[in-house]
Design a protein around this nucleic acid. Structure first.
Lengths: 205, 205
DNA sequence: ACCTGAACACCGTTCAAGT
DNA sequence: ACCTGAACACCGTTCAAGT
Protein backbone atom coordinates (compact mmCIF):
# COMPACT_ATOMS: atom_id res chain seq x y z
CA UNK A 1 0.00 0.00 0.00
CA UNK A 2 2.81 2.41 0.84
CA UNK A 3 4.77 1.98 -2.40
CA UNK A 4 1.66 2.86 -4.40
CA UNK A 5 1.31 6.19 -2.63
CA UNK A 6 2.59 8.20 -5.57
CA UNK A 7 0.04 6.80 -7.92
CA UNK A 8 -2.63 7.27 -5.30
CA UNK A 9 -1.75 10.86 -4.60
CA UNK A 10 -1.76 11.51 -8.33
CA UNK A 11 -5.33 10.60 -9.00
CA UNK A 12 -6.87 10.74 -5.55
CA UNK A 13 -9.64 13.23 -5.95
CA UNK A 14 -8.33 13.92 -9.41
CA UNK A 15 -8.91 10.72 -11.31
CA UNK A 16 -10.55 12.80 -14.00
CA UNK A 17 -7.37 14.79 -14.66
CA UNK A 18 -5.26 11.63 -14.53
CA UNK A 19 -7.48 9.96 -17.10
CA UNK A 20 -7.41 12.98 -19.41
CA UNK A 21 -3.65 13.06 -19.13
CA UNK A 22 -3.28 9.40 -20.04
CA UNK A 23 -5.89 9.79 -22.80
CA UNK A 24 -4.00 12.67 -24.35
CA UNK A 25 -0.84 10.61 -24.55
CA UNK A 26 -2.75 7.68 -26.00
CA UNK A 27 -4.43 9.79 -28.66
CA UNK A 28 -1.13 11.40 -29.58
CA UNK A 29 0.51 8.00 -29.93
CA UNK A 30 -2.21 5.89 -31.54
CA UNK A 31 -5.11 8.15 -32.51
CA UNK A 32 -8.58 8.52 -31.01
CA UNK A 33 -9.89 5.39 -32.71
CA UNK A 34 -7.50 3.18 -30.75
CA UNK A 35 -8.24 4.74 -27.38
CA UNK A 36 -9.45 2.21 -24.80
CA UNK A 37 -11.07 3.19 -21.51
CA UNK A 38 -9.95 -0.07 -19.94
CA UNK A 39 -6.37 0.66 -21.01
CA UNK A 40 -6.50 4.12 -19.45
CA UNK A 41 -7.92 2.73 -16.22
CA UNK A 42 -5.12 0.17 -16.09
CA UNK A 43 -2.47 2.79 -16.74
CA UNK A 44 -3.79 5.07 -14.02
CA UNK A 45 -4.11 2.11 -11.63
CA UNK A 46 -7.85 1.96 -11.14
CA UNK A 47 -10.58 -0.55 -11.95
CA UNK A 48 -12.10 -0.50 -15.42
CA UNK A 49 -15.42 0.73 -14.03
CA UNK A 50 -13.94 3.70 -12.16
CA UNK A 51 -13.80 6.13 -15.14
CA UNK A 52 -17.57 5.96 -15.23
CA UNK A 53 -17.67 8.35 -12.23
CA UNK A 54 -16.03 11.08 -14.32
CA UNK A 55 -17.04 10.31 -17.89
CA UNK A 56 -20.43 8.84 -18.71
CA UNK A 57 -18.97 7.07 -21.73
CA UNK A 58 -16.05 6.98 -24.13
CA UNK A 59 -17.37 9.83 -26.25
CA UNK A 60 -17.61 12.12 -23.24
CA UNK A 61 -13.92 11.66 -22.57
CA UNK A 62 -13.09 12.34 -26.22
CA UNK A 63 -15.24 15.48 -26.07
CA UNK A 64 -13.32 16.68 -23.02
CA UNK A 65 -10.07 16.00 -24.86
CA UNK A 66 -11.21 17.99 -27.89
CA UNK A 67 -12.34 20.80 -25.62
CA UNK A 68 -8.91 21.00 -23.97
CA UNK A 69 -7.36 20.95 -27.44
CA UNK A 70 -9.41 23.95 -28.58
CA UNK A 71 -8.52 25.83 -25.41
CA UNK A 72 -4.82 25.26 -25.97
CA UNK A 73 -5.09 26.12 -29.66
CA UNK A 74 -6.84 29.39 -28.86
CA UNK A 75 -4.23 30.31 -26.28
CA UNK A 76 -1.48 29.55 -28.76
CA UNK A 77 -3.03 31.79 -31.42
CA UNK A 78 -3.74 34.58 -28.93
CA UNK A 79 -0.15 34.47 -27.64
CA UNK A 80 1.19 34.70 -31.18
CA UNK A 81 -0.94 37.76 -31.95
CA UNK A 82 -0.05 39.51 -28.69
CA UNK A 83 3.66 38.92 -28.98
CA UNK A 84 3.86 40.47 -32.42
CA UNK A 85 3.80 44.24 -32.71
CA UNK A 86 5.17 44.84 -36.18
CA UNK A 87 2.00 45.57 -38.09
CA UNK A 88 -1.05 43.72 -39.30
CA UNK A 89 0.51 41.45 -41.92
CA UNK A 90 3.14 40.18 -39.51
CA UNK A 91 0.56 39.60 -36.80
CA UNK A 92 -1.55 37.59 -39.23
CA UNK A 93 1.45 35.55 -40.36
CA UNK A 94 2.35 34.74 -36.76
CA UNK A 95 -1.20 33.79 -35.79
CA UNK A 96 -1.50 31.52 -38.80
CA UNK A 97 1.90 30.01 -38.13
CA UNK A 98 0.95 29.26 -34.52
CA UNK A 99 -2.25 27.58 -35.68
CA UNK A 100 -0.52 25.61 -38.41
CA UNK A 101 2.27 24.32 -36.20
CA UNK A 102 -0.03 23.43 -33.33
CA UNK A 103 -2.13 21.43 -35.79
CA UNK A 104 0.69 19.56 -37.48
CA UNK A 105 2.41 18.85 -34.16
CA UNK A 106 -0.82 17.36 -32.79
CA UNK A 107 -2.36 15.70 -35.85
CA UNK A 108 -4.41 13.09 -33.96
CA UNK A 109 -5.74 15.75 -31.60
CA UNK A 110 -6.79 17.93 -34.50
CA UNK A 111 -8.47 15.02 -36.19
CA UNK A 112 -10.46 14.59 -33.00
CA UNK A 113 -11.23 18.32 -32.83
CA UNK A 114 -12.38 18.24 -36.46
CA UNK A 115 -14.48 15.15 -35.85
CA UNK A 116 -18.19 15.14 -36.57
CA UNK A 117 -18.92 13.33 -33.34
CA UNK A 118 -18.55 16.09 -30.80
CA UNK A 119 -21.33 18.07 -32.46
CA UNK A 120 -23.57 17.48 -29.51
CA UNK A 121 -21.10 18.60 -26.84
CA UNK A 122 -21.88 22.23 -25.95
CA UNK A 123 -18.73 22.86 -23.91
CA UNK A 124 -16.58 21.61 -26.79
CA UNK A 125 -18.46 23.87 -29.19
CA UNK A 126 -17.89 26.81 -26.84
CA UNK A 127 -14.16 26.04 -26.66
CA UNK A 128 -14.03 25.95 -30.45
CA UNK A 129 -15.71 29.34 -30.60
CA UNK A 130 -13.24 30.71 -28.08
CA UNK A 131 -10.29 29.42 -30.11
CA UNK A 132 -11.70 31.21 -33.13
CA UNK A 133 -12.10 34.52 -31.29
CA UNK A 134 -8.52 35.84 -31.61
CA UNK A 135 -8.77 35.35 -35.37
CA UNK A 136 -11.96 37.41 -35.58
CA UNK A 137 -10.30 40.10 -33.45
CA UNK A 138 -7.36 40.13 -35.82
CA UNK A 139 -9.64 40.54 -38.83
CA UNK A 140 -11.42 43.39 -37.05
CA UNK A 141 -8.07 45.07 -36.51
CA UNK A 142 -7.25 44.74 -40.21
CA UNK A 143 -10.58 46.28 -41.13
CA UNK A 144 -10.06 49.19 -38.74
CA UNK A 145 -6.70 49.86 -40.37
CA UNK A 146 -8.40 49.54 -43.78
CA UNK A 147 -5.97 46.80 -44.72
CA UNK A 148 -8.95 44.47 -45.10
CA UNK A 149 -12.23 45.22 -46.84
CA UNK A 150 -15.20 46.13 -44.67
CA UNK A 151 -17.92 43.64 -43.88
CA UNK A 152 -18.68 40.92 -41.38
CA UNK A 153 -15.32 40.07 -39.75
CA UNK A 154 -16.54 36.58 -38.89
CA UNK A 155 -16.84 35.72 -42.59
CA UNK A 156 -13.25 36.60 -43.39
CA UNK A 157 -12.12 34.92 -40.20
CA UNK A 158 -13.88 31.69 -41.11
CA UNK A 159 -12.24 31.62 -44.52
CA UNK A 160 -8.79 32.19 -43.05
CA UNK A 161 -9.43 29.57 -40.37
CA UNK A 162 -10.68 27.07 -42.95
CA UNK A 163 -7.71 27.67 -45.23
CA UNK A 164 -5.13 27.09 -42.52
CA UNK A 165 -7.00 24.10 -41.12
CA UNK A 166 -7.19 22.65 -44.63
CA UNK A 167 -3.49 23.17 -45.27
CA UNK A 168 -2.54 21.41 -42.04
CA UNK A 169 -4.74 18.52 -43.11
CA UNK A 170 -2.83 18.20 -46.37
CA UNK A 171 0.29 17.78 -44.26
CA UNK A 172 -1.23 15.44 -41.66
CA UNK A 173 -2.64 13.14 -44.34
CA UNK A 174 0.74 13.12 -46.10
CA UNK A 175 -0.70 14.63 -49.24
CA UNK A 176 2.01 17.25 -48.87
CA UNK A 177 5.37 16.85 -47.09
CA UNK A 178 5.73 18.69 -43.78
CA UNK A 179 8.59 20.77 -45.18
CA UNK A 180 6.11 22.65 -47.36
CA UNK A 181 3.92 23.79 -44.45
CA UNK A 182 5.46 27.24 -44.02
CA UNK A 183 5.66 27.84 -47.74
CA UNK A 184 1.98 26.99 -48.17
CA UNK A 185 0.73 29.02 -45.22
CA UNK A 186 2.88 32.01 -46.27
CA UNK A 187 1.45 31.94 -49.78
CA UNK A 188 -2.05 31.49 -48.39
CA UNK A 189 -1.69 34.48 -46.06
CA UNK A 190 -0.19 36.66 -48.77
CA UNK A 191 -3.08 35.84 -51.10
CA UNK A 192 -5.63 36.25 -48.34
CA UNK A 193 -4.34 39.73 -47.59
CA UNK A 194 -4.44 40.61 -51.29
CA UNK A 195 -7.82 39.03 -51.96
CA UNK A 196 -9.47 40.65 -48.94
CA UNK A 197 -7.61 43.94 -49.25
CA UNK A 198 -9.36 47.20 -48.39
CA UNK A 199 -9.69 49.94 -51.00
CA UNK A 200 -6.70 51.93 -49.82
CA UNK A 201 -4.31 49.08 -50.37
CA UNK A 202 -5.70 47.45 -53.48
CA UNK A 203 -5.59 50.82 -55.27
CA UNK A 204 -2.09 51.58 -54.13
CA UNK A 205 -0.80 48.66 -56.17
CA UNK B 1 -32.01 -22.21 -50.23
CA UNK B 2 -34.12 -20.94 -53.12
CA UNK B 3 -35.52 -17.89 -51.39
CA UNK B 4 -32.00 -16.74 -50.59
CA UNK B 5 -31.01 -16.79 -54.25
CA UNK B 6 -31.13 -13.03 -54.63
CA UNK B 7 -28.72 -12.48 -51.83
CA UNK B 8 -26.53 -15.23 -53.21
CA UNK B 9 -26.48 -13.85 -56.70
CA UNK B 10 -25.65 -10.45 -55.29
CA UNK B 11 -22.40 -11.36 -53.65
CA UNK B 12 -21.47 -14.60 -55.31
CA UNK B 13 -18.09 -13.89 -56.76
CA UNK B 14 -18.56 -10.31 -55.69
CA UNK B 15 -18.59 -10.41 -51.93
CA UNK B 16 -16.04 -7.63 -52.00
CA UNK B 17 -18.40 -5.26 -53.79
CA UNK B 18 -21.30 -6.29 -51.56
CA UNK B 19 -19.25 -5.56 -48.45
CA UNK B 20 -18.12 -2.18 -49.76
CA UNK B 21 -21.70 -1.31 -50.57
CA UNK B 22 -22.92 -2.19 -47.09
CA UNK B 23 -19.92 -0.45 -45.57
CA UNK B 24 -20.66 2.76 -47.43
CA UNK B 25 -24.21 2.80 -46.12
CA UNK B 26 -22.99 2.09 -42.60
CA UNK B 27 -20.38 4.86 -42.69
CA UNK B 28 -22.91 7.30 -44.07
CA UNK B 29 -25.37 6.42 -41.30
CA UNK B 30 -23.12 6.02 -38.27
CA UNK B 31 -19.58 7.09 -39.18
CA UNK B 32 -16.44 5.05 -39.74
CA UNK B 33 -15.79 4.62 -36.02
CA UNK B 34 -18.98 2.58 -35.60
CA UNK B 35 -18.36 0.31 -38.56
CA UNK B 36 -18.32 -3.36 -37.61
CA UNK B 37 -17.03 -6.09 -39.91
CA UNK B 38 -19.26 -8.63 -38.21
CA UNK B 39 -22.27 -6.41 -38.83
CA UNK B 40 -21.43 -6.11 -42.51
CA UNK B 41 -20.98 -9.86 -42.83
CA UNK B 42 -24.36 -10.41 -41.20
CA UNK B 43 -26.04 -7.89 -43.45
CA UNK B 44 -24.58 -9.42 -46.59
CA UNK B 45 -25.48 -12.91 -45.34
CA UNK B 46 -22.06 -14.43 -44.87
CA UNK B 47 -20.03 -15.72 -41.93
CA UNK B 48 -18.03 -13.22 -39.90
CA UNK B 49 -14.77 -14.71 -41.14
CA UNK B 50 -15.64 -14.43 -44.83
CA UNK B 51 -14.63 -10.76 -45.32
CA UNK B 52 -11.10 -11.81 -44.54
CA UNK B 53 -10.79 -13.21 -48.09
CA UNK B 54 -11.25 -9.72 -49.52
CA UNK B 55 -9.96 -7.37 -46.83
CA UNK B 56 -7.03 -8.33 -44.64
CA UNK B 57 -8.43 -6.26 -41.80
CA UNK B 58 -10.86 -3.50 -40.91
CA UNK B 59 -8.48 -0.74 -41.96
CA UNK B 60 -8.09 -2.21 -45.43
CA UNK B 61 -11.83 -1.97 -45.97
CA UNK B 62 -11.85 1.63 -44.74
CA UNK B 63 -8.96 2.41 -47.10
CA UNK B 64 -10.94 0.96 -50.01
CA UNK B 65 -13.91 3.07 -48.98
CA UNK B 66 -11.81 6.22 -48.85
CA UNK B 67 -10.32 5.35 -52.23
CA UNK B 68 -13.78 5.02 -53.80
CA UNK B 69 -14.71 8.33 -52.18
CA UNK B 70 -11.77 10.13 -53.74
CA UNK B 71 -12.59 8.64 -57.13
CA UNK B 72 -16.18 9.84 -56.96
CA UNK B 73 -15.09 13.27 -55.67
CA UNK B 74 -12.64 13.66 -58.55
CA UNK B 75 -15.28 12.67 -61.08
CA UNK B 76 -17.71 15.14 -59.58
CA UNK B 77 -15.20 17.99 -59.81
CA UNK B 78 -14.16 17.05 -63.35
CA UNK B 79 -17.77 16.91 -64.50
CA UNK B 80 -18.43 20.35 -63.02
CA UNK B 81 -15.46 21.85 -64.83
CA UNK B 82 -16.32 20.22 -68.15
CA UNK B 83 -19.96 21.20 -68.09
CA UNK B 84 -19.19 24.86 -67.61
CA UNK B 85 -18.02 26.86 -70.59
CA UNK B 86 -18.61 30.44 -69.48
CA UNK B 87 -15.12 31.52 -68.58
CA UNK B 88 -12.56 30.77 -65.93
CA UNK B 89 -14.25 32.34 -62.89
CA UNK B 90 -17.48 30.45 -63.51
CA UNK B 91 -15.60 27.19 -64.06
CA UNK B 92 -13.78 27.68 -60.76
CA UNK B 93 -17.02 28.48 -58.94
CA UNK B 94 -18.65 25.34 -60.30
CA UNK B 95 -15.71 23.10 -59.48
CA UNK B 96 -15.56 24.45 -55.94
CA UNK B 97 -19.31 24.12 -55.55
CA UNK B 98 -19.19 20.48 -56.68
CA UNK B 99 -16.43 19.77 -54.16
CA UNK B 100 -18.20 21.59 -51.35
CA UNK B 101 -21.54 19.91 -51.88
CA UNK B 102 -20.06 16.45 -52.29
CA UNK B 103 -18.24 16.97 -49.00
CA UNK B 104 -21.15 18.28 -46.99
CA UNK B 105 -23.51 15.64 -48.40
CA UNK B 106 -21.07 12.89 -47.39
CA UNK B 107 -19.59 14.22 -44.14
CA UNK B 108 -18.66 10.84 -42.64
CA UNK B 109 -17.04 9.77 -45.90
CA UNK B 110 -14.99 12.95 -46.03
CA UNK B 111 -13.93 12.50 -42.44
CA UNK B 112 -12.67 9.08 -43.47
CA UNK B 113 -10.92 10.51 -46.54
CA UNK B 114 -9.28 13.17 -44.38
CA UNK B 115 -8.24 10.63 -41.79
CA UNK B 116 -4.62 10.19 -40.81
CA UNK B 117 -4.94 6.45 -40.86
CA UNK B 118 -4.91 5.72 -44.57
CA UNK B 119 -1.48 7.31 -44.92
CA UNK B 120 0.03 3.94 -45.66
CA UNK B 121 -2.42 2.90 -48.38
CA UNK B 122 -0.82 3.68 -51.76
CA UNK B 123 -3.95 3.15 -53.86
CA UNK B 124 -5.89 5.55 -51.63
CA UNK B 125 -3.11 8.10 -51.96
CA UNK B 126 -3.20 7.71 -55.74
CA UNK B 127 -6.97 8.21 -55.78
CA UNK B 128 -6.54 11.37 -53.71
CA UNK B 129 -3.98 12.65 -56.21
CA UNK B 130 -6.36 11.87 -59.07
CA UNK B 131 -9.19 13.76 -57.38
CA UNK B 132 -6.87 16.75 -57.06
CA UNK B 133 -5.86 16.68 -60.73
CA UNK B 134 -8.86 18.57 -62.24
CA UNK B 135 -8.16 21.40 -59.81
CA UNK B 136 -4.54 21.66 -60.91
CA UNK B 137 -5.69 21.64 -64.55
CA UNK B 138 -8.11 24.43 -63.79
CA UNK B 139 -5.36 26.52 -62.18
CA UNK B 140 -3.16 25.90 -65.21
CA UNK B 141 -5.96 27.17 -67.44
CA UNK B 142 -6.24 30.32 -65.34
CA UNK B 143 -2.52 30.90 -65.62
CA UNK B 144 -2.58 30.42 -69.39
CA UNK B 145 -5.31 33.06 -69.63
CA UNK B 146 -3.27 35.27 -67.29
CA UNK B 147 -6.19 35.41 -64.88
CA UNK B 148 -3.95 33.82 -62.26
CA UNK B 149 -0.36 34.73 -61.48
CA UNK B 150 2.35 32.52 -62.92
CA UNK B 151 4.13 29.93 -60.82
CA UNK B 152 3.71 26.34 -59.73
CA UNK B 153 0.04 25.49 -60.43
CA UNK B 154 0.08 22.78 -57.75
CA UNK B 155 0.72 25.38 -55.04
CA UNK B 156 -2.32 27.46 -55.93
CA UNK B 157 -4.35 24.30 -56.37
CA UNK B 158 -3.44 23.04 -52.91
CA UNK B 159 -4.48 26.31 -51.32
CA UNK B 160 -7.83 26.31 -53.11
CA UNK B 161 -8.35 22.65 -52.24
CA UNK B 162 -7.45 23.27 -48.60
CA UNK B 163 -9.75 26.27 -48.37
CA UNK B 164 -12.79 24.45 -49.71
CA UNK B 165 -12.03 21.35 -47.66
CA UNK B 166 -11.71 23.53 -44.57
CA UNK B 167 -14.98 25.33 -45.24
CA UNK B 168 -16.87 22.07 -45.62
CA UNK B 169 -15.41 20.98 -42.29
CA UNK B 170 -16.81 24.09 -40.61
CA UNK B 171 -20.22 22.98 -41.85
CA UNK B 172 -19.82 19.29 -41.03
CA UNK B 173 -18.69 20.03 -37.48
CA UNK B 174 -21.63 22.42 -37.06
CA UNK B 175 -19.36 25.37 -36.44
CA UNK B 176 -21.27 27.04 -39.25
CA UNK B 177 -24.85 26.30 -40.39
CA UNK B 178 -25.21 24.50 -43.72
CA UNK B 179 -27.12 27.46 -45.16
CA UNK B 180 -23.91 29.48 -45.20
CA UNK B 181 -21.96 26.99 -47.33
CA UNK B 182 -22.54 28.69 -50.69
CA UNK B 183 -21.99 32.16 -49.26
CA UNK B 184 -18.66 31.10 -47.76
CA UNK B 185 -17.37 29.24 -50.82
CA UNK B 186 -18.43 32.15 -53.09
CA UNK B 187 -16.55 34.65 -50.95
CA UNK B 188 -13.57 32.32 -50.77
CA UNK B 189 -13.45 31.87 -54.55
CA UNK B 190 -13.83 35.59 -55.17
CA UNK B 191 -10.96 36.36 -52.81
CA UNK B 192 -8.87 33.53 -54.20
CA UNK B 193 -9.23 34.91 -57.72
CA UNK B 194 -8.32 38.41 -56.49
CA UNK B 195 -5.46 37.27 -54.30
CA UNK B 196 -3.91 35.06 -56.96
CA UNK B 197 -4.73 37.38 -59.87
CA UNK B 198 -2.27 37.74 -62.75
CA UNK B 199 -0.80 41.14 -63.58
CA UNK B 200 -3.29 41.95 -66.34
CA UNK B 201 -6.24 41.68 -64.03
CA UNK B 202 -4.89 43.09 -60.82
CA UNK B 203 -3.79 46.26 -62.66
CA UNK B 204 -7.10 46.64 -64.47
CA UNK B 205 -8.82 47.29 -61.20
C1' DA C 1 -10.79 -20.91 -54.28
C1' DC C 2 -13.92 -19.58 -50.96
C1' DC C 3 -16.40 -19.93 -46.89
C1' DT C 4 -17.64 -21.81 -41.98
C1' DG C 5 -17.51 -22.37 -36.88
C1' DA C 6 -15.11 -22.41 -32.87
C1' DA C 7 -11.76 -20.06 -30.16
C1' DC C 8 -8.94 -16.14 -28.28
C1' DA C 9 -8.18 -11.93 -26.40
C1' DC C 10 -10.00 -8.04 -26.18
C1' DC C 11 -13.84 -4.08 -25.85
C1' DG C 12 -17.76 -0.54 -23.56
C1' DT C 13 -21.31 -0.53 -20.38
C1' DT C 14 -24.09 -1.91 -16.39
C1' DC C 15 -24.88 -2.89 -11.64
C1' DA C 16 -24.92 -4.89 -7.11
C1' DA C 17 -21.78 -4.64 -3.52
C1' DG C 18 -18.21 -2.84 -0.73
C1' DT C 19 -15.69 1.21 2.13
C1' DA D 1 -18.95 9.86 -2.53
C1' DC D 2 -16.11 6.87 -4.90
C1' DC D 3 -14.47 2.61 -6.39
C1' DT D 4 -14.57 -2.72 -7.23
C1' DG D 5 -15.67 -7.23 -9.48
C1' DA D 6 -18.58 -9.93 -11.95
C1' DA D 7 -21.52 -10.13 -15.85
C1' DC D 8 -23.40 -9.04 -20.55
C1' DA D 9 -23.22 -8.40 -25.17
C1' DC D 10 -20.45 -7.25 -28.25
C1' DC D 11 -15.78 -6.69 -31.12
C1' DG D 12 -11.42 -8.02 -34.66
C1' DT D 13 -8.59 -11.65 -35.79
C1' DT D 14 -6.95 -16.41 -36.32
C1' DC D 15 -7.22 -21.06 -37.91
C1' DA D 16 -8.46 -25.78 -38.63
C1' DA D 17 -11.94 -27.78 -41.23
C1' DG D 18 -15.27 -28.28 -44.78
C1' DT D 19 -17.01 -28.02 -50.05
Amino acid sequence: MNDQSEQWRYHHGDLRAALLDAAERSVRAHGAAQLSLRDLAREVGVSHAAPRRHFADRQELLDALAEAGFTRLGESIRRAVEQTGEGFAARTRHAVSAFAHFATENPALLELMNSTKHQGAPSTARAAEAAFEPIVELIREGQTQNVLEAGEPEELGLILYATVNGITMLVSTNMVPAERLDELTDTAVRQFLRGAAGEAHSQAR
